[in-house]
Design a protein around this nucleic acid. Structure first.
Length: 705
RNA sequence: GGCGAAUUAGCUCAGUGGUUAGAGCAGCGGAAUCAUAAUCCGUUGGUCCGGGGUUCAAAUCCCUGAUUCGCCA
């Protein structure tokens, strides 16, 4: 087989927010694919980095009172530790805030400029006069020009779905300072995507050479239009100071927009690896030298726009090679719905690991669901438990567990040799005559992981049936049939070995432990040429194994409940953070603010939650969001101002029971003293607030815990 | 509003013109007792979203409606 030279990337996670199970769909799938290719003997480099620039990072660092550099260094460590915990094995995990990425950004910009593809134009934007900065769309809030909903972002309304320019908002205010923004013009730098050298190139590139999945190519066609339609508009690649990023070489006070240097971060990370390990960078990036190397980007479908249009156009016109293929995948839903903080399904990588759940359970489940299309995949938590327990523990691990005991106790770890081994090979070849290893190979190559897993589990089913037919536990009762017993159990172990090889890209850590158990070198990828029998895949005759120690435990439903409970966000009527990752371009999958730090049961028990009867509910004159509630908690009445006006009329509330925080420090508000807080669920959308209620029977004053 | 995708068993999903639509899980009945209750055999279960059309033949192709989800305006 020709040794391929492959460079693989996953999208760069933004350095403002935690890695969650949605992100992991991408990193796990890339990692499995890379491990598969490496096992086949190809030369593969897998690089990634934190995406570190932009206004959200700058503001968050400021809020925390630290430098952006300190912030991104900390987040880099957190991200890498999450990835490592899930056995994502990068060859380099770097940062876009690096000399390499700066150099390539300047280089590509300069080449585009020299080619006449950079235009400068004045544009008018909203400016925060207090903070003295231009405001990205997401940092301007106000009333929707269409439906009038309050507190909407500058690009679209979450209440009615309307899209508009931030300048159209009514009563706009800056999400940074609260000040009313003013219009101010400034010179911006544009990448001339509308130039024929970009649009014609992209029309061809997105259609040819299998660069994109068919659905993705169709989507790009929608954006590109037919020749002459000129649907692409130029891309604004500059931002004004203050901005955390790279200053544009010949333009003081102008910075590269974060999305310009983010994909360049792939090059930067790889360059850094090349320097360290003496790899030829040019062999992968210079058009003349890179014809025998492959470049693949794994991304979420939300950032296709950047990777399938801007990025190839930049590379092409700056004189670099373009990607071999872009592999876009869908989003993760949990129990069929978007991940939700209030439902506890917005699960962070860190919490999953901290709860002691096995990362390989998730790797396996994702593998069992993933295919090569843009379809979303669903993490159904009940199915997750059933599937992992049944497939991995019941079918796969159990094969080793049920056969190893006899081999260890009765044969001192020795598998069969000589004639018995030849006989066993014959049995395997007969039993698996129809077995087509190349189908698994092909499925992995095509990123049809679910199809591969179906095949592999079919093999496991066959193995269990074979063992059942031989019934070693019966044979074991007859001391005359020692050889037969050894053969039957050897068969089980040998089949387990083959299965382990197939599963190694998915379960790297279990594979490592299996290597120890089976006392063998690194498990190889099971490859056969057409004329070779399946029995060629087996361990050699007379091999000896170590005693079995259990390799994987079952998931208990309780563990999932605990995980979800740990991820339920404390629900106060506070607004969604303006600087959450989702507000940064379409960068993250369902990205929302990071989950709060883990707390102990002691921390939790400090909060005194009580059942409260809403004795009285009334409007507050002059308040936009608040209702005044009088709460009966058994032995006293409390006054609480609750931000639930958008969702409830006072009349609806009187008499009903809810839950309140009874020991919250009283707070003086404009309209009076608030002596606690009621609990309500919501995603921050006005009108979508849901007050908690106890089951029938609860009485005012009862403690909730 | 425009464009696109999806809709198949209780659940998660295969199946893109060719017997009687499949798998895993769950359920039910049995067997087995080597295995951290893991296995095996059998079995129940479907208006393939609805309606119309093309065809000798449709889950599959076309039209239409519904619902859901994306993207765009």
């Amino acid at each position: 087989m020709n040794k391929r030279k492959i460079l693989v990337t996953s999208a760069l996670p933004y350095a403002n927010g935690s890695i969650h199970l949605g992100h992991l769909v991408e990193y796990i799938q890339t990692d499995m694919w890379v491990r598969f290719q490496k096992m086949r003997g190809h030369s593969v480099f897998y690089v990634c980095a934190d995406d570190t620039h932009g206004t959200p990072i700058m503001l968050r660092a400021e809020k925390e009172g630290i430098s952006p550099e300190t912030l991104i260094a900390r987040v880099h460590d957190e991200h890498l530790s999450d990835f490592t915990g899930f056995y994502i094995r990068f060859d380099n995990y770097y940062s876009t805030h690096s000399p390499e990425t700066r150099q390539f950004s300047e280089d590509i910009y300069t080449r585009l400029k020299n080619a006449g593809l950079i235009a400068v134009r004045g544009i008018e934007q909203l400016y925060d006069p207090v903070k003295q900065m231009f405001l990205p769309d997401r940092f301007v809030k106000g009333e929707c020009p269409k439906c009038g909903a309050k507190d909407q972002y500058g690009d679209s309304c979450e209440a009615c779905g309307a899209a508009y320019a931030p300048t159209e908002l009514k009563n706009p205010y800056s999400a940074v300072s609260g000040a009313e923004p003013v219009k101010k013009s400034s010179e911006h730098y544009f990448f001339s995507l509308s130039d024929a050298r970009c649009s014609d190139f992209l029309r061809a590139w997105t259609r040819e050479g299998d660069h994109l999945q068919p659905e993705a190519a169709n989507k790009m066609h929608e954006w590109l239009g037919e020749a002459g339609e000129n649907k692409l508009s130029d891309w604004d690649i500059s931002r004004d100071a203050p901005y955390f990023g790279f200053e544009i070489p010949d333009a003081r006070g102008k910075y590269f927009y974060v999305w310009l240097d983010a994909p360049i971060g792939y090059m930067g990370s790889f360059k850094n690896l090349c320097e360290r390990e003496n790899i030829s960078f040019d062999a992968f990036w210079q058009p003349g030298l890179s014809s025998d190397t492959e470049l693949y980007h794994f991304i979420g479908k939300d950032i296709l726009y950047f990777h399938a249009l801007f990025w190839p156009a930049m590379l092409k016109n700056a004189g670099y090679r373009t990607p071999t293929k872009i592999f876009a995948h869908g989003f993760l839903t949990v129990n069929g719905e978007k991940m939700s903080k209030s439902r506890g399904t917005f699960i962070t990588a860190e919490s999953y690991l901290k709860q002691g759940l096995n990362p390989e359970w998730l790797r396996y489940y994702y593998a069992a669901k993933l295919n090569s299309t843009l379809e979303d995949i669903d993490l159904n938590l009940e199915d997750f438990v059933a599937r992992v327990n049944s497939d991995l523990v019941g079918k796969f691990i159990n094969i080793a567990s049920r056969c190893a005991g006899f081999i260890t106790k009765r044969f001192n770890g020795q598998l069969v040799d000589g004639e018995q081994y030849q006989h066993l090979r014959a049995i395997v070849d007969k039993r698996f005559a129809m077995w087509r290893p190349d189908q698994i190979d092909h499925a992995f190559e095509q990123r049809e992981f679910a199809a591969a897993v179906r095949q592999i589990m079919k093999f496991a089913d066959e193995a269990n049936e074979a063992i059942h037919e031989l019934a070693p536990w019966e044979i074991a009762k007859d001391p005359q049939r020692e050889n037969e017993l050894q053969s039957a159990c050897t068969l089980g172990i040998q089949l387990f070995y083959v299965l382990s090889c197939y599963l190694k890209p998915i379960l790297p850590e279990t594979a490592r432990r299996i290597e120890h158990f089976l006392n063998c070198e690194s498990l190889p990828w099971p490859a056969l040429t057409d004329d070779q029998p399946v029995s060629n895949l087996l361990l050699p005759a007379g091999h000896a194994i170590n005693p079995y120690q259990h390799l994987m435990t079952r998931i208990e439903a309780k563990q999932i409940d605990a995980l979800v409970a740990a991820n339920v966000q404390s629900l106060t009527p506070s607004a969604v953070q303006a600087d959450s990752p989702a507000r940064h371009g379409q960068k993250q999958q369902h990205g929302i603010a990071p989950i709060a730090d883990m707390i102990s049961i002691d921390d939790f028990s400090k909060i005194d939650l009580r059942i409260a009867r809403i004795a009285k509910a009334e409007h507050v004159a002059g308040a936009e969001k608040l209702l005044k509630l009088t709460l009966d908690i058994g032995n006293e009445l409390r006054t609480v101002f609750a931000g639930i006006k958008s969702a409830y009329d006072p009349e609806q509330l009187e008499g009903r029971l809810t839950v309140m925080v009874a020991n919250l420090a009283p707070r003086q508000m404009k309209f009076g003293l608030s002596e606690g807080m009621v609990l309500a669920a919501g995603d921050g959308n006005p009108g979508e607030l849901f007050l908690l209620s106890p089951d029938t029977g609860a009485q005012p004053g009862m403690r909730v815990k």
